[in-house]
């Protein structure tokens, strides 16, 4: 056996998970924003938790190919139902869509029915949040909360990145690509889907907790259908299946929303809708190409700035 070839393959495989210049640049920019943009920390905080939500959705949409309309609601119950569904035979896309949506609506009803705890439709105001580690108090400018959100986002991102490059992550891409073949090579498709659903649920839960902590406000709005639809849009703008889609999408979406809301405060929803329609008509692939192009450009720039870096293989699972 050509052992040189074996070593070469092992090296190439190991390099897949290596950090690319683009990624260093992204996180350095995020870190820089803590110090360089102190006046924008409130919106940056929103971007950070939106990014975490989107990351959670990307894990199931981009890596396992499940469309969820109940994402803003907690997945814990969703994963349980998914497990039940899996046991009782396969459901269609629409079935899954309706189950995720139904779970979200039920969660919302429950929250609505126990106003003592949730504040009902008015939401919970004046949530008192203890200082982080007993030292850092949240301030009204969002300095601490931004740093806090960013750290949580970064840590959870590292974890997701690790999972994506594991055999488990690869098997998810296989399930998404061709579930029939995946089960024909011994992959238990339903067990994998339930696992990633639960994992993503954890992320969504953390994102929800972050939201409540940093805004000292929790409302039923997070369960709403519109929120889930926004989240889909975030991910579509950024592209699915390469982890950064949710993060980049969150930045673009928030800035766009901010900009549109300044132009037409009441009717920004119209423009969001228009963007969705146009993205689909133009084709998500092409939109993905666009963000892919921006990424490639960023990589080329960073590589020029950091000479001697390894050549960058195209990240797996581009685009959609």
């Amino acid at each position: 056996m050509a052992s040189a070839l074996v070593a070469e393959v092992a090296r190439r495989l190991a390099r897949r998970a290596r950090w690319r210049p683009f990624e260093y640049a992204f996180w350095l920019a995020a870190l820089a924003s803590v110090f360089l943009l102190p006046g924008r920390h409130l919106i940056l905080t929103e971007i950070a938790w939106l990014a975490l939500f989107a990351l959670s959705l990307d894990l199931i949409l981009g890596y396992a190919g499940i469309i969820s309309l109940g994402h803003a609601a907690f997945f814990g119950l969703g994963s349980y139902v998914a497990a039940l569904l899996a046991k009782h035979g396969r459901g269609s896309d629409l079935t899954r869509l309706m189950v995720t949506l139904g779970v979200a609506l039920i969660m919302r009803e429950i929250a609505n029915q126990i106003p003592d705890i949730t504040g009902g439709a008015d939401g919970l105001q004046g949530v008192v949040v203890a200082p982080i580690l007993g030292v850092f108090h949240f301030d009204i400018f969002g300095h601490v909360s931004y740093a806090y959100c960013l750290i949580v986002l970064f840590v959870l991102f590292l974890l997701a990145r690790r999972v994506v490059y594991s055999p488990f992550g690869l098997s998810l891409r296989a399930v998404k690509g061709n579930a029939l073949r995946a089960s024909s090579i011994g992959i238990s498709v339903n067990a994998r889907l339930v696992a990633i659903y639960t994992f993503a649920a954890f992320y969504a839960g953390v994102a929800g907790a972050l939201l409540a902590q940093t805004t000292a406000f929790a409302s039923l709005d997070v369960f709403s259908f519109e929120r889930s639809a926004d989240l889909l849009l975030v991910l579509i703008i950024g592209g699915t299946g390469y982890l950064y889609g949710g993060l980049i999408g969150a930045v673009i979406f928030k800035l766009m929303q901010d900009w549109i809301a300044n132009l037409t405060p009441q009717y920004w929803q119209f423009w969001i809708g228009l963007v969705l329609v146009l993205i689909v008509l133009v084709g998500r692939d092409r939109v993905g190409l666009w963000t892919g192009g921006v990424r490639a450009l960023a990589e080329r720039l960073t590589r020029r700035l950091a000479p001697g870096a390894a050549p960058v293989p195209v990240p797996p699972g581009e685009g959609h």
Binding site: V9, A10, R12, L13, A14, R16, A17, R162, V163, Y165, S166, P167, F168, G169, L170, S171, A174, I185, G186, I187, A191, R192, A195
Partner: peptide, 18 residues
């Protein structure tokens, strides 16, 4: 993928591929 699955390593989520 197929080999990892056969060896029961397909669901490992912490170890890296290769």
């Amino acid at each position: 993928l197929a080999i990892a699955e056969r060896l029961g390593a397909g669901a490992h989520w912490w170890r890296l591929i290769g």
